[in-house]
Measured scan of single mutants.
Amino acid sequence: TTLHFDLDGKKLQYTGVSEEIARLVEELKRRGVDLKEIVRILEELLK
């Protein structure tokens, strides 16, 4: 799965993300978590 974000005018793309992580990101968005925080979490998970 590939995730795309537009953060402060920067286009971020994460490829090869598992379905689980993609679902987690969608859930965080639904809960109103700040996009910067979501990206920070995502980068930690993908290390």
Rank of each mutant, 00 (worst) to 15 (best):
A22N: 06
Y14T: 00
V17T: 02
L42R: 00
L7I: 15
E19S: 08
T15D: 11
Q13W: 11
L45G: 05
E20W: 11
T15A: 09
G16V: 04
V25L: 05
S18Y: 02
K11H: 15
L3Y: 03
T15R: 07
K47S: 11
H4Y: 13
L45N: 08
R23F: 10
D6Q: 06
E43T: 06
K36M: 09
V25I: 10
L7P: 00
L46T: 05
V17Q: 01
E43K: 03
K29R: 14
Q13E: 14
G9P: 01
R40S: 09
R30K: 09
L3C: 03
V17H: 01
V25H: 02
L45S: 10
L28R: 03
I21D: 08
E26T: 15
I21N: 11
T2Q: 05
R40N: 09
K11M: 10
L35H: 10
V25Q: 01
R30I: 10
Q13M: 15
D6F: 10
L12H: 06
E20M: 06
L35S: 08
F5I: 07
R23N: 13
A22E: 08
T15Y: 07
I38L: 07
Y14A: 00
G32N: 14
I38T: 04
I41L: 10
L24D: 10
T1P: 06
E27L: 15
Q13F: 13
E27Q: 12
F5R: 00
G9A: 02
F5C: 01
D34W: 09
L35K: 06
I21L: 07
L3W: 01
V39C: 03
K10V: 13
K29N: 08
K36Q: 12
L35R: 04
L35V: 14
A22D: 03
K10R: 10
D8N: 05
V39H: 04
D6A: 03
G16E: 06
G16I: 04
K47M: 13
G32F: 06
L12I: 12
K11T: 12
R31V: 08
L12N: 02
V33H: 06
I41Y: 08
L42V: 07
E27W: 13
R30N: 09
T1N: 11
D8T: 01
G9H: 03
G32I: 04
E44F: 15
L35W: 03
E27T: 15
L24F: 11
R30F: 14
E44L: 12
K10L: 13
K10S: 08
L28S: 03
F5G: 00
R31E: 10
L28G: 02
I41T: 12
V25S: 03
V17Y: 01
G9S: 03
L45M: 13
K36T: 13
A22I: 09
K29G: 09
K36G: 08
Y14Q: 00
R30Y: 12
G32Q: 12
